[in-house]
Every structure is written in structure tokens, then in C-alpha cells.
Amino acid sequence: MGSSSDTIIEIRDLHYSRAHRPIFKGLNVDIRRGEVTAIMGPSGTGKTTLLRLITRQLVPDHGHIYIDGVDISQLDQEELYALRRRFGMLFQNGALLTDISVFENVAFPLREHTNLSNRLIRHVVLTKLHAVGLRGAADMMPQELSGGMARRVALARAMVMDPDILIYDEPFVGLDPISMGVIVRLVRRMNDALGISSILVSHDVQEISTVSDCSYLISDGKVAAKGSPQELSNTTSDLVKQFMYGMADGPVAFHFDAPDYAEQLLGRDTE
């Protein structure tokens, strides 16, 4: 599989099911180099699962994921770890290591993978913490931080190894407007200043439209729509409109499959 040089990640015909329930049914996605790509979709469409498949924390049932033209399912443990060093990932809850300080959390990848002197590590860590506005929190423990602060520390940690690809899993959930604004600007600024490629999973349509170059809307295991924020908001598709404008009625049902409401309330379904 040859890869065009402007595509860093190619996902082809991806199938994945969990507990006999299909999550992806032939998904095709291209992540372009140097851009911010957003993956959107209603809850439960498997957005986080997709990130875990891209980083091979999960293995697809069928289909391929190519990173720089290399099929990641063919990599052994060593090669996989070498690949993961090119990734920075921001987890939904930050996933900071709770037994070490903020400073040590950010220093963690450097201490594990490099032989840098303490002086240099200190310099790099303080620079990254300064970028997220938390240099003053370096000596605090993760449990002393608010949710937004923890996520900013996690962001500093994700970028400390200067990754090629930064992955954000729901970076805007539960943030106050100020932290949200800071994170949105950081995502864009880091992408442009450091020349990295970013993948952003979220359902915050507003924030995504200010930050992303290209968005994929995933529904029912496939790509339902793709395009720039402008293109998506001018769409004629009912599904896209429902999602972009947060409408209750549309192709995506609000109710999970259930027996008839009246029948169930009257207890006839148990007879």
C-alpha cells in the first residue's frame, strides 16, 4: 500500500466489533499531515475505540491501518513502541500517574526514553508546563489539581517528546470557558508551530469548527460525512444537520431500542 506524502494515517475498510456488537463496518479515514482532523459522532459510535485502534491498543477484526505507509498490524512489540514514541495522546481524564508530582509526570517519558541530564530535563519540563500555564503547579500532586488543570498537565506530558502526531480524546469535556478557550488555542497553535498532525475526538461542534481543518462524522460504523467545518454546516444531509445543530429528531434515534412504551408501562410486555 503506497501512501501519498500528505497523508500520515490511512484507515481502510476497518471492521471492529465488541461483545458481538459491530462498532465499525468498513470505515475509511485519511488523516492529513500537518492538519487538525476532527472525528465526531454521537455517543457510543466508537470514537475512543477508533483512537485505540489507531494506536494499536486494540486490534481490528478486519481491515488495515497504515501510518506513513506502514501497516501497524505487522509491527512487533519493539517496532510498536518505537511508533508510539511518535505519538502524544491526551486521555479523556488526563490519566496522570497519581504517585508522582506534576513535574515528574511531564518528565516521565524523558526519564524513560532518554539519557538527558537532570538539568536539561528540568529545562524541557518547565518549558512545556509554561506553555500550558502551569509552571507554578510543578510541585503539586495530580490529586491536588482540578479536572481542567489535570488535562493541561496531560497535554504538556503528551507533547514533551515532541511527537509527530497528537491525539486528543474529548479534550473539551467538563472544562470551564476559560480553560476551554486555552485548550482550543493550544491545539491550533501547537499544530501550526510544531508542524505536527492532530487528531481530535469530540462532539463539541462549536469548538471543533473553530479548530479543525477537516472533520469526519461517524455514524453506524461508517463515515457519514466528511469535510471542512464550513462544508459540514452547509450540508443538506439530515444526519449531519441533526448532529451539527443538536436536533432531537432525525436519523439518529434518541431512544435506545425498547419495547412499546405504553405496553411496558402497563406491564403487558412481561405477561
Partner: peptide
């Protein structure tokens, strides 16, 4: 640590 994704985070940092 597993429930709060700390082990996954380490995996992602190639540790």
C-alpha cells in the same frame, strides 16, 4: 491505575 487509564497512558508513552 488501570481504571483511570494510567496503564494505557504508559502503553501510549511506549513504557
Amino acid at each position: 491505575m488501570k481504571a483511570t487509564d494510567q496503564l494505557s497512558a504508559m502503553e501510549m508513552m511506549a513504557v
